[in-house]
């Protein structure tokens, strides 16, 4: 099997940040490289390419996924959202505002992945969001700068604001 050309390209079609896209992808290219290289989505950051650091976290069919652990060809048929798409749609505007106000980022390299992970957590309205639960939820996203405290604060603030908004909507 070693004779298979790793750069042989395969056609894929998927939904990327709300748009239908197509690409030809070398078999060995991971999804992170595809999104950054072919589509210019440089908000997808590569930190370890081992699935450990979480910097490349994106949403695939609504679930947080490491872009470095999926091959580009596996994107075929998927619905993919990156920090750029979540920004454009306004879905995480409150979260971004809370991160900004709380200075829950420094160098910004972990930030897109952290926001996507937090977005997944907050999307589940039933999910509890104590500080411990928030810490557990983001424990797959490495941040060297902040010490995490401010990130936990920002996510907790957003969770509370969304809870309050839901409560008001019900009342």
């Amino acid at each position: 099997m070693a004779s298979e050309n790793p750069d042989r390209e395969h056609a894929v079609a998927f939904t990327l940040n709300g748009e239908a896209v197509r690409a030809r992808v070398p078999a060995r290219m991971h999804l992170g490289d595809l999104l950054r290289g072919t589509f210019g989505l440089t908000g997808v950051h590569l930190g370890c390419e081992h699935g450990v650091c979480g910097a490349c976290t994106i949403l695939v069919d609504g679930r947080a996924v490491r872009a470095c652990l999926m091959l580009g060809v596996q994107a075929d048929g998927a619905v993919i959202e990156t920090v750029e798409g979540l920004t454009e749609s306004g879905l995480i505007r409150d979260l971004q505002d809370a991160f900004h106000a709380r200075n829950a980022l420094q160098c910004g390299y972990c930030t897109p992945g952290m926001l996507v992970t937090a977005a997944e957590l907050l999307a589940d309205e039933a999910a509890a969001s104590s500080r411990e639960e928030i810490r557990a939820a983001i424990s797959g996203n490495y941040c060297r700068c902040t010490g995490y405290h401010a990130i936990v604060d920002a996510i907790a603030t957003t969770a509370e604001a969304r809870r309050d908004a839901r409560r008001e909507a019900v009342e």
């Binding site: 989505l41 440089t42 908000g43 997808v44 750029e84 971004q96 900004h100 200075n103 980022l105 910004g108």
Partner: peptide
């Protein structure tokens, strides 16, 4: 910090 929050850092 805004651009970093939007994935627009360089």
């Amino acid at each position: 910090a805004r651009r970093l929050l939007e994935g627009r850092g360089v």
